[in-house]
């Protein structure tokens, strides 16, 4: 393929965007390199901070049989890498009624029986741009361990690359999301102190004091602010303020 650009600056390197050669500065991320090449993103670009999962990218390097993956916003270009973004990959997500669902593995098996089509090939884990041990959480779910699945899948950004590579055609990231919600809302112990506070607020405990606060002139508010007791930086759960005003 002929050069579409002339090499004019020393620090430019060639990359191949969907097979087409562009010269880009060597220090750029894939995302900025694609923009440098002249593209304007609609898909394939989101938070630009490595957490939203919009910009998953797969690439190979010259003379290397391996498939690599990365987030375009986090991965620095390399000479002669050839890449494509996979901004969307279809995966079946099943609707469910969270409120009535039992927090047991069987609930997940019923919604996603394909879970057992997993052949433990580990392609999911190998492609994950976040280094999530995808196969490990799928295996944990096969064992019925929702807590482990929650922990292992916690850094998942739901980019869908795992599903794109899966021999068993699983939508891993949807399954993990379900497991995490069942764990977070139904298996993990709930915060009793939170429930109590919500109840007391609903009962109107602070209605009067808030009315008074809202009506205060700024200088009096400033005084209350300056004089408010500060919980020490190194305190633990046992710390109590010296007076109960405002509680």
């Amino acid at each position: 393929m002929p050069n579409v650009q002339k090499e004019t600056e020393a620090d430019l390197i060639p990359i191949f965007i969907m097979g087409k050669r562009y010269l880009v500065p060597e220090s750029l991320t894939i995302m900025k390199a694609i923009e440098y090449a002249g593209y304007q993103f609609i898909r394939g670009c989101g938070c630009r901070g490595g957490i939203c999962g919009a910009c998953s990218t797969v690439y190979r390097k010259a003379g290397d049989y391996k498939i690599y993956s990365g987030l375009a916003c986090q991965t620095v270009v390399e000479p002669n890498m050839y890449l494509t973004q996979i901004p969307f990959f279809p995966a079946l997500r099943r609707e469910y009624d969270y409120e009535t669902m039992e927090p047991v593995a069987e609930s997940i098996y019923q919604l996603y029986p394909e879970l057992f089509r997993c052949v433990a090939c580990n392609a999911c884990t190998k492609i994950c741009p976040m280094d999530v041990q995808v196969l490990d959480y799928i295996s944990a779910l096969k064992r019925g361990d929702l807590e482990a699945a929650t922990r292992i899948s916690f850094d998942c950004i739901q980019c869908g690359l795992c599903a794109s590579r899966c021999m068993g055609e699983l939508p891993q990231y949807h399954i993990a999301q379900l497991a995490r919600r069942l764990h977070g809302g139904k298996l993990a112990p709930r915060a009793e102190h939170l429930r109590q506070v919500v109840e007391s607020i609903a009962a109107g405990k602070f209605a009067d004091v808030m009315e008074e606060l809202k009506a205060l002139p700024v200088d009096e508010l400033r005084k209350l602010y300056t004089e408010r007791e500060l919980e020490p930086a190194m305190s633990d759960e046992q710390w109590r303020p010296s007076n109960n005003a405002g509680l």
Binding site: H193, L224, R240, L247
Partner: peptide, 19 residues
Amino acid sequence: AASKGEKDSPYYHYLDVMG
């Protein structure tokens, strides 16, 4: 959120936000 009633309340959260 002032979720710990023994030491915190909307009152203190309000003061902090305003300050």
